[in-house]
Design a protein around this nucleic acid. Structure first.
Lengths: 332, 332
DNA sequence: ACTGTTTGTGTAATCGTGTGCACAATGTAT
DNA sequence: ATACATTGTGCACACGATTACACAAACAGT
């Protein structure tokens, strides 16, 4: 029985074994279907005995629902995204939905990648990545009734979106740093110019403007520790800033290490460093990061909510807004 | 054109538009197929115009290859696995293969999860997780010609495996720690009793035995920072150990923080701490971990190698052995 | 006993492609 | 000019399930 490399049995073959038609086999596996309970039990028994399970590919072709969900992400190696991905995958699996991961960061042709995934007739698409344009995603997944969940709202499209508001929390954080006497601020972006990045930067820029300040310098990394480290060295040495707002937590940790190791400056006295995302790692004792935090569970709840509305055929695009909070550590 | 919620066009409909039969459409999309190049060009043009792409579900049903790969992992949130996953996903995508992720850590019924994935006729299965037994995986994915790649070798099955040898590196590390004067060792496991965990523990246990020593204490975590922190407090306080070998790097960082914060002990003078995996984070300036490291690229190279052998229909199970190296930091 | 409803099952069409076979058209060798 | 190999295309079936429809059996109500 174990490990035999035999071909998977088909519904028709099982039908012969159980002395019924293949239609009845199908009905035995559809929860609410007109079928005698005795017949069903017998079929399920025979099925278990022969290791039969309905072919999901054939089933998907027939009823136009694949139970596959495409997750468009930057990377799965970066903890900043990974925690949310983990939560979402968990929720999807609980609903018998299977996630297909599309990693954009290291793929040269992201559109081709999305096109490939779209041919699998995925039921839903969740775009986390800020490396693809929403418009491209909408165009490629135009099929059936896709919902695209993302930060970026597209007003005139049938796309649901989750909006993030961190203005207030950013204001709190800037307030504290200014009161601590810091004067020269820098923003360290994660991407060259994504919608998300611009939005986040604006929260802090507005908070600075309110106090008659502005970013003295701007640098661009790639959401990695190394880029945070490298860019921070430049910002601190060349631009003489004393506060760095980072596009995510991982870069903030890199920046903190750079300040300490290369420049000999410590947080929060010599320099203030702020992260964004509020990942678990940021709260580790060795990091203790001040960060603009988003409630991951609430965020994924919102994603699932949108997916469910979509499944329930609720009309029109939907939008949910979430608010960030400041999480205080010893770096600012 | 953009974002219209229209139904996806089918091969037969496109055939009508292009004035050919649906068979010819199919051939236009199969690279090596007897078809006039003029016809193909015309078809591809019409296809692009109408946004046609062959339905991968139907294609999979027909030719028995789904181009889907199941990745059975513990979690995607944990950096220790995520880096390898990221590399593998990248390599798969380059081959036009799509990964389906199965997260075992938070799913109550892992067998049911694997059964679900197996109904999608995945072409390959890669088992990273140590939370499912190999035998279960083999039984569930018995279909067609699956290859299961994993640490655990199953001699009498048609299963390919990757074996990891860290004995020598563990010996080096233990040697250094013993010469530094440490006497009481503890092992902090990641899982209660997985094959991988036992193997790793044995490398260090053997190295200790060679020097007339043994583990004085043993604890069980769950590969997370918090569990590393919590268990280390117990090990240090209750069991008075002065060296902790951890099942992965994240727990090692947790243990290091616990020693410093709760007990006021520093590495490597008061206590030695060793991780395993060699993730990027371990080398960050703030961590600088001594760890039993596996070359991630070589590991994923091996996985891809096995997948390719399988695609090429090379007979029989294969096995590749990789060797770990010691990566020195300031924690031991 | 007769009509009408409910229940369980089989038949056959369908989902969208890929491909073996047949066949026409074209090219090539004698 | 005839025979034969090659190329390009259409027809029809297969892949493995779901489901509308038909129909027999069982059952209810008067």
């Amino acid at each position: 029985m174990s490990g035999m490399n035999r071909r998977r049995i088909t519904s028709k073959e099982l039908a012969k074994l159980a002395g019924v038609s293949s239609a009845t086999i199908s009905r035995a596996f559809s929860p609410d279907s007109r079928i005698g309970s005795a017949t069903r039990d017998r079929i399920l028994a025979v099925a278990r005995e022969h290791g039969y399970q309905p072919n999901a590919i054939a089933r998907s072709l027939n009823n136009q629902r694949s139970r596959l969900v495409a997750l468009v992400v930057n990377a799965i190696g970066n903890p900043c995204e990974a925690e949310e991905q983990q939560l979402l995958v968990h929720r999807l699996q609980a609903r018998q939905l299977l996630p297909i991961i599309l990693c954009c960061a290291d793929h040269s042709d992201r559109l081709q990648l999305m096109r490939l995934a779209s041919t699998y007739q995925v039921d839903h698409v969740v775009v986390f990545s800020d490396m693809v344009s929403m418009q491209d995603a909408v165009d490629i997944f135009h099929t059936t009734k896709p919902i695209i969940v993302s930060f970026e709202p597209l007003e005139n499209e049938s796309v649901s979106s989750i909006r993030i508001d961190g203005a207030e929390a950013a204001d709190e954080i800037i307030d504290k740093i200014v009161r601590d006497g810091k004067k020269r601020f820098a923003y360290l972006s994660g991407t060259n110019s994504s919608w998300i990045d611009k939005l986040r930067r604006k929260w802090f820029a507005d908070a600075l403007a309110k106090r008659g300040l502005a970013f003295e310098a701007q640098a661009f990394g790639d959401y990695s520790y190394d880029s945070g480290f490298k860019e921070a060295v430049l910002l601190l040495h060349r631009d003489k800033v004393d506060a760095i707002i980072c596009g995510n937590d991982v870069m903030a940790i890199g920046a903190r290490d750079a300040a300490r190791r290369v420049l000999g400056k410590n947080t929060p006295d010599d320099i203030a460093i702020v992260g964004q995302d509020g990942i678990a790692m940021a709260a580790w004792d060795c990091n203790d990061l001040t960060t603009l935090s988003l409630d991951h569970v609430a965020f994924i709840d919102a994603v699932v909510e949108l997916i469910e509305r979509h499944d329930a055929e609720v009309e029109g695009p939907h939008s949910i807004t979430l608010t960030c909070t400041a999480r205080w550590g010893s770096t600012a």
